[in-house]
């Protein structure tokens, strides 16, 4: 019989740790997880952030010209492309709603997006659930009554997933809808929160997200009214800590809002400049 063993001595284990720290080598984390402390005594996390710090967030509006609206978002190593088509006539008669528009969401994950290569079918239950979560979030925010009998399509393509793919998808979808000129009540800004040793963490990466002892909370808010439109949590947490986590995550949402808003304003400014100079 042959056995497959992984070199864990000296250099290799250091490298494994290093990779885990960079949270790039996600496949080995189940092994590395038990050794990596998520929050060290100095108050730093595995990727060197403080507990209440977001990852670097950068976004771009209309990376694709042919679609009605598109946006690309990078939150640390999580990268999502969102594309919006519509409002346009519904494709299937069953979806026609006489008083408002139908929002269709498709959530796709690249086979190479996570640490372990995995090809997901389009009927994967987990993906359908995520698509539904995004749909429900935007159903209440998009002014669907302005476009009766029509359909708005949102396609989300996760290119890299290093934790928080759902929050990145929601943020990207917001930008793509803004780019498409779809009327909305407000932005939808999403962020994740967690908890380690009764210390709340903001914007979990893959290692923190997949750790069994960290609860994983995704919140989306409407920043102007502060209302919560999406809330998902797994694992268990004491109710005192839940409030702390929720407050931190909502604070994160407001920071995300500032970034999204400035990128929308920049891109509109560029557009305005182009129109006035030509």
């Amino acid at each position: 019989m042959t056995t497959v063993t992984t070199a864990v001595g000296g250099v290799a284990s250091f490298l494994l740790f290093f990779r885990a720290v960079c949270s790039l080598f996600i496949g080995a984390t189940s092994f590395a997880m038990s050794r990596v402390e998520l929050l060290n005594p100095e108050g730093l996390r595995v990727d060197g952030r403080r507990a209440n710090e977001l990852r670097k967030l950068s976004c771009k509006l209309s990376p694709l010209q042919h679609a009605d609206g598109s946006a690309y978002i990078e939150q640390g190593n999580t990268k999502v492309l969102a594309v919006v088509y519509g409002p346009r006539e519904t494709r299937h008669r069953a979806q026609v709603m006489h008083d408002r528009a139908y929002i269709n969401v498709e959530y796709l994950v690249a086979p190479f997006s996570a640490g372990e290569r995995k090809k997901r079918s389009k009927n994967d239950k987990r993906l359908l659930e995520l698509a539904l979560a995004v749909k429900q979030t935007f159903d209440s925010v998009v002014m669907t009554t302005l476009h009766p009998r029509s359909q708005i399509d949102i396609y989300l393509q996760v290119l890299q997933d290093d934790g928080g793919a759902l929050q990145a998808s929601i943020n990207a979808a917001t930008l793509a809808l803004v780019d498409a000129g779809v009327p909305m009540v407000d932005y939808v800004c999403a962020c994740t929160g967690g908890c380690v040793d009764s210390q709340a963490l903001l914007d979990l990466n893959h290692i923190e997200e997949s750790s069994a002892e960290t609860p994983d909370l995704t919140v989306a808010i409407l920043p102007r009214s502060g209302k919560v439109t999406l809330l998902q949590m797994t694992s268990r947490v004491h109710s005192d800590q839940f409030e702390q986590m929720l407050n931190l995550a909502m604070e994160g949402c407001r920071q995300v809002h500032a970034v999204l808003d400035s990128s929308v304003r920049d891109s509109m400014q560029q557009l305005a400049d182009q129109m006035t100079h030509r």
Partner: peptide, 16 residues
């Protein structure tokens, strides 16, 4: 080899 056309390229690639 596996090639996937994303619906970001065209709406025709939606679903199946």
């Amino acid at each position: 080899v596996s090639v996937e056309c994303s619906p970001s390229a065209s709406q025709r690639f939606e679903g199946r």
